[in-house]
């Protein structure tokens, strides 16, 4: 086994072990931290495949963005410091069954698809990705790119509408100054 393969199995073990721990631990904050380590492991896998751009985006979006949001949500929940009660056996059983079913299904699909072997080196440079993103012809992603941007814009407008104060509604000054 070469060092290349050992690295792969190491990263894969990290992802699986931390992923397993994140669903079995009974402290919710620890669960978020295990999820974080699992996502970092996925980023490591991308680095291993030498697609650095995807790896950096994985870290920036999932680790720096989503896990931080999850942690904030955990901080704001009540009694998040306590251990959660043990799940009833029936629920555990069904969870295990569904996980096993999902795993079997994925393995079945992976085994039945013939992955084509390509010899040319993958060019994952940033300029290539950028050009493909704005390309309208074949292998171009201009339409999905625009659709996603409109979706994000709609989400942003929605956030502003939710967060906006009603102009007619006045904040009670007394409450602010003398709580």
């Amino acid at each position: 086994m070469t060092a290349y393969q050992i690295t792969f199995y190491g990263i894969a073990a990290l992802i699986l072990v931390t992923g397993f721990l994140s669903v079995t631990t009974r402290k919710i904050f620890r669960s978020a931290i295990w999820l974080l380590l699992s996502l970092i492991g996925v980023a490591g896998l991308y680095f291993w495949m030498e697609v650095e751009f995807i790896a950096a985006v994985q870290i920036a979006v999932y680790v720096g963005g989503i896990v931080v949001l999850i942690i904030f949500a955990v901080f704001l929940t009540q009694q998040s410091g306590n251990e959660m009660p043990k799940a009833p056996p029936a629920r555990t059983l069904f969870a295990v069954l569904s996980a096993l079913f999902g795993m079997a299904f994925s393995i079945y699909i992976i085994c039945n698809i013939k992955f084509p072997v390509r010899n040319e080196v993958l060019d994952a440079s940033v300029s290539k990705i950028g050009t493909a993103m704005l390309h309208t012809g074949k292998d171009g992603y201009a339409l999905p790119f625009e659709v996603v941007s409109i979706l994000l814009l709609a989400a942003m407008v929605g956030c502003i509408v939710i967060a906006m104060k009603n102009p007619g509604e006045k904040i009670d000054e007394k409450i602010i100054n003398h709580p």
């Binding site: 870290i59 680790v63 931080v68």
Partner: peptide, 24 residues
């Protein structure tokens, strides 16, 4: 690394998790 600047801004966002962890 060929994405140097992006790498830096991505990884630097992880340090906040250490701070959140310490505070919690």
């Amino acid at each position: 690394i060929n994405i140097g600047v992006l790498f830096v801004s991505a990884v630097s966002s992880v340090s906040v998790i250490g701070i959140l962890m310490a505070g919690w």
